[in-house]
Amino acid sequence: MFEARLGQATILKKILDAIKDLLNEATFDCSDSGIQLQAMDNSHVSLVSLTLRSDGFDKFRCDRNLSMGMNLGSMAKILKCANNEDNVTMKAQDNADTVTIMFESANQEKVSDYEMKLMNLDQEHLGIPETDFSCVVRMPAMEFARICRDLAQFSESVVICCTKEGVKFSASGDVGTANIKLAQTGSVDKEEEAVIIEMQEPVTLTFACRYLNAFTKATPLSTQVQLSMCADVPLVVEYAIKDLGHIRYYLAPKIED
């Protein structure tokens, strides 16, 4: 028996919004430690890794490890039927071929349930090597989304250059060149507005705007985003999900042809 309950459906809606542009379907691996999802996008350029800890749920029970393959378009249809403040409960029997998603209004006067067919997905888990990153940047998630959106107008690629002074995002194309520099913030009143750079050595990497923009669909989950970079390895874009876990996107760099 698997049962997981969250106080607000809005969190699940935001999580789905953060992955459904990259993935058509995905396997949710459930165990007593929580729910994990790891999947590559269709073009095998990026990898999405979602971790939801069992202690972040209002109620969590998982008697036996369970892998639930879900069509994310179908899940999105179901979540559209929930009000943001509804409680949401996911339930499945051991070895079941369906999952039940139930919404309850705060006053318990409206209860709806949706049974969704599960899929058998060929899932390949990838081993992600430990990396000592050269640069780790923490910045407001909205600012990162804004930069990715703005620079995508000028080029398919963005160059991220990180030094101890700051981080520079550049794009160059037919229109010309765009550069956005962010300096590390001095003192800020609010932690969520800070730009913090931890640098071991400077790094310059090129990434496809299309994927960065897809990752920023996770912006509503978190006030801050963390970018971890190292020469010739995938960028890690991480959004914390408060009290519940995190979503990490890995993006392979563009390399010299």
Partner: peptide, 14 residues
């Protein structure tokens, strides 16, 4: 010119 690398160039299948 740059070309897009694949994620499997970096991460191996378990």
């Amino acid at each position: 010119k740059t070309k897009q690398a694949g994620i499997l160039n970096f991460f191996s299948k378990k």
